[in-house]
Nucleic acid binder design. Structure first.
Lengths: 242, 242
DNA sequence: CTTCTACGGTTCTATATAGAACTAGTTGAC
DNA sequence: GTCAACTAGTTCTATATAGAACCGTAGAAG
């Protein structure tokens, strides 16, 4: 029994419809991280498709970073590696040089009307604004302001802080089925205004790095806009091109 | 007649050997940008492989950004879009906001022994150091120092400057068959030392952005290390993740 | 001149099949 | 107990084939 899928456009080729179906089942939480998916043979039988078509659909998801194939063993759901890459950028290190995961403190979550630039980027004015402070060994080093569409994340303001970890993308995925697949960053340098200077514990006008990010879901729809601000002298941003 | 290929490891699957062969012919300049490659049918006949296998090889090269398929028309060699992406990063703009391609002036090219960090990154100490200044509307905005392995780029020092355009990667490809497929950037913040300050026409100690880049050839071998330095206030770096 | 139609060539989708390569677990020999 | 051999199940490679979808051109129709 395979639920025939009303949402997928029937004009799409079969392998893409199968890909969408599997992606949806992943988003619905049918499998956990590192879980074994049905084999190519089973899928082909269930969906009445040839193995070649199934392979093509799976390959697509592998390319998108959702699945992982192990020859001889099977196909597995991959824990989104996005968090890791995210944190390779802010090469935050303790004084002794050991890399460390920053902690994260939520300052506010409010439903607001988005600033025009943000509204244009997200395609809606009805958003939730999140303010957040990230610390490393008790010392703040990054002040962030995030906007997410209220329609896509209903009730986000009400989630108890205790249930929100240091990273938001897992929360998006677990509670709202939104998988952040891609993002665009822009880095520039500026000076700290009074509010952020106070939050970061630096002098007003001190040099800061600004990172603007627009994050997209698998569908290509923008789902988060954020700007982060940290002291320039401790800042490192890494990226990989090509 | 297809040259049987002595360089490709015969233990590799056929589609990878075909990919290598085509990649080599591209590097050898057999086709120019936007040229039409032989059709799948022709390739499959020439190499005595099935169309499916040929498609797999071509798909690989498409994924790597070397080729471009147009349904109904054929498969074309893609002008490396690397230059474009490269310059999306340095979002240099004229005063009126119009994006502009910076000009480039070579200051020196010398065969030297690499600094230890660079030597370690490139895997050799025998390198050519290139110093370069990039300008936008006559005003310098980026001072660069590059290192490339002398063995991989023999005679690079001797190429007349008139034959080197504003971008180096096309030169690597055209004259040395080195296709830069991938790069890793690191952006950080610092202050200008005396030499770069003079070159950029800014005060010593002024805030600057530093971009370190390690570039890799298709084979995975590192082929260039560079560091670029520009005034922090005019700087923008863009990247795309995921 | 414009629009339509037909055609050869191309890539794209999909199926069916066979065997190789690999993995993890089980069984059996010693 | 240890190690080798076997086995069922999985992905991977490769082939062959058929038709759909698409592009560019050439020629016909208006």
């Amino acid at each position: 029994m395979t639920a025939p899928n009303p949402q997928s456009d029937t004009r799409l080729p079969a392998y893409l419809r199968l890909r969408d179906d599997i992606a949806r089942r992943i988003a619905a939480g049918e499998w956990g991280p590192d879980d074994l998916l049905p084999s190519e043979n089973k899928l082909s039988a269930q969906h009445a498709l040839s193995v070649g078509t199934v392979r093509k659909a799976i390959q697509q998801l592998v390319d998108e970073g959702l699945l992982e194939r192990r020859q001889g063993s099977g196909t597995f759901l991959r824990k989104p590696a996005f968090d890791a890459t995210l944190f390779r950028f802010f090469q935050a290190r303790e004084a002794d040089g050991a890399p460390s995961i920053p902690s994260s403190r939520l300052i506010s979550r409010t439903r607001v009307t988005a600033p025009t630039a943000v509204g244009a980027a997200l395609g809606t004015e009805d958003v939730i604004r999140i303010e957040r402070l990230r610390c490393l060994s008790e010392q703040p080093f990054l002040a962030e302001t995030l906007y997410i569409p209220a329609a896509r994340f209903p009730g986000f303001e009400a989630i108890p802080e205790s249930e929100i970890g240091p990273l938001l993308y897992p929360v998006y995925l677990d509670r709202f089925g939104v998988f952040v697949a891609r993002a665009e960053d822009e880095v520039r340098f500026g000076t700290a205004d009074a509010a952020t200077a106070r939050r970061l514990g630096i002098a007003e006008g001190a040099p800061v790095a600004l990172i603007e990010r627009l994050a997209f879901a698998m569908s290509g729809e923008p789902v988060e806009w954020r700007i982060a601000c940290g002291p320039a002298d401790r800042f490192r941003y890494r990226s990989r091109i090509g």
